[in-house]
Every structure is written in C-alpha cells, then in structure tokens.
Simulated assay, not measured.
Amino acid sequence: MTKEHVQRIVLGDVEVLRITEWQGPFTAARDLVPDSTADMWRDNEDVLAPDHWDPAADQAVGALQSWVLRSGGRTVLVDTGVGNGRERPGTPWFHRQEGDFLGLLARAGVRPEDVDLVVNTHVHADHVGWNTRAEEGAWVPSFPRAQYLIPAADDFHFGPDNGYGQGRRVDDRLIYEDSIAPVHRAGQAVLWDGEHRIDEHLVLESAPGHTPGSSVLRVASGGERAVFAGDLLHSPVQILDPSCNSCFCLDPERAAASRRRILERAAEERELVVPAHFGGPGAVEVRRSGSGFAFGPRAAD
C-alpha cells in the first residue's frame, strides 16, 4: 500500500487530491462487515490483500482520508476526518486525537482560506471532525470562507431536533455540538436533500441507509466519471455482495439498496468508485458479475 500522504489524479477538467492521514489494519474483518463470511475473505484474498485485508491477523485494512477537488475555479473539500482534541468516549479510535490534517492540506497547496466548499457526505465523527478547530476555548469553522454542504436528513437526525441521533450514542451529541453546530452559528451551513448540483461537473446525490442523509458526490467531466461514495462501502467484499452492510449502517435494508444502486450505475457508466476508507489506491473500477459485481472495468462494447 502506498505511504504517500498526498496523491493527485485528473478527471477531465477536475483535479483530485487524495489527503491520507492514516492507513493500515484497524479491526477484525467480520466485525467490520458482520454479514460477510470467512469464505468471502479467503476466496478473494488475491484482490483483498494486502490493501484491504491482512489475512494473517484477519484484520480489515482501511484509511482515514479526505479529498480535495478543484473544479470550475473552486476548491471543494470532501469530508474532514476526525479532528483534534475531540471527546469521543464511545469511539476509542477517535477519542482525543491529535493529527496534522491542516498541515497535510498545506503540503498539497491548500490553505484553509482557499476552500470554497466543504462537503460532508454524512455526519459521522470521521467525516466532520475538521469542520471546526479550537480557538480561544471555542469551536470555530476551520475554513472561514467556505460553505458547508450538510445533508439535511443527517442534520435533523444527529441534531437537537431528533435528540442527537435519538440518544443512542453519547458521541452523536458531542459530534454535533463541536463539529456541526458551530458551522450553523457562523452562518456557513447549507442543508440540502435529494440532489444538489455544485457546478457543471459535480453533483451531490442522497444515498440513505448508512445514515439517514448519507450521500455520494458524482463527477462527470471530459468523458471521465467517478463517484465519491462515502461510507456506502467500507470494504471491497461489499462490492462482491452488496447486501453485506458494515457494522455502522443505521438502516441496513436502505443501505444495501443504495449500495446496489450506486454500484449498478458505476458498472453501467464506467464510474470510478472512490469510497471514503479504502486502502491501497483508494479507488476501484467495478463490473457486473452474475447477480453481483467484480473488480475491474467491464469489457468494451
């Protein structure tokens, strides 16, 4: 797997920078994808190891990463990682972390004031953490000029109106209070639902299930296509069998339906699939295979 923290690709007129904070094994494979079987992992070791699975330890391999898209003269940041100094007692991986996310952005030539739009694909701790930073004892937006595009269904579910995720996890209240509410107070939050076009190349689309407002960002430019799939996929085994949900999906039935729909379109339209947490190159091509999907481009027509 790559150890580079910043990588660049071009999709038509859209420049894409991959910002990787961390990459490696992080949990037992079937704890991450409980619906999967041991055979699914073993039988596909050739495509899963080493970038997505450590067979010796039976650990899923993943990455904590964000994406910067330069499109139509604007800089768009897709998801913002865990953040620093966050109280996340229910999630040890994210509790009181101290990272160098803004430094990685600077290495890629992106200053906080350069960011025009922040896209939160959904409101989970590892996707909204750097929405804000601490300043004189208060949380303030990290990107002072940016509009923050937040799915309205997630804002409602994880916000006070629906009892901070219906009170299921203490972390949900903390996440909203330190990473979402300050953006609202600063007047920088833009809530959307269904579909939201950013420019001629970029469009956000609801894909609910993982969370009520889970979304994907589609890119189409110069004949190149990609879909930034957020947490619809945590592992490639979910491509092989889209009915397999991660342990984090709040509505498994809707999540599986959204996953299949996005994968069907990706296979049909040759969209590069870019999930939030894939290790290795961080993206994959898919094609139809029987009732499911396989890795790699489909044959030319």
Rank of each mutant, 00 (worst) to 15 (best):
V110C: 03
N120V: 06
W41E: 00
W139N: 06
E177H: 10
P275G: 08
S291A: 13
S142M: 05
D199P: 06
R287V: 05
A146P: 01
M1G: 12
G137D: 07
R30P: 11
F278D: 02
D116Y: 05
A257P: 03
G109M: 11
T37C: 04
H234G: 03
V216I: 09
L105Q: 00
P297H: 08
E87L: 10
S206K: 07
E271S: 07
V219G: 00
A257V: 12
V216A: 03
H127E: 12
W53M: 08
V170C: 07
G292S: 13
N44D: 12
P55F: 06
R173Y: 06
R88V: 02
F156H: 15
R254K: 10
A108R: 08
R30F: 09
R133D: 01
V110W: 01
A255G: 09
A189L: 07
L174H: 08
A138W: 09
P112G: 10
R70S: 12
A108D: 08
P208W: 04
A226H: 01
V170N: 06
F143Q: 02
D301R: 15
P160C: 07
W130F: 14
F278H: 04
A60W: 03
G209H: 04
V14L: 03
H277S: 13
R133P: 00
L64W: 14
T121L: 15
A60S: 13
S36A: 15
A56P: 10
A60H: 06
A49V: 12
D161C: 04
R145S: 13
G62H: 03
P275Q: 11
R270G: 09
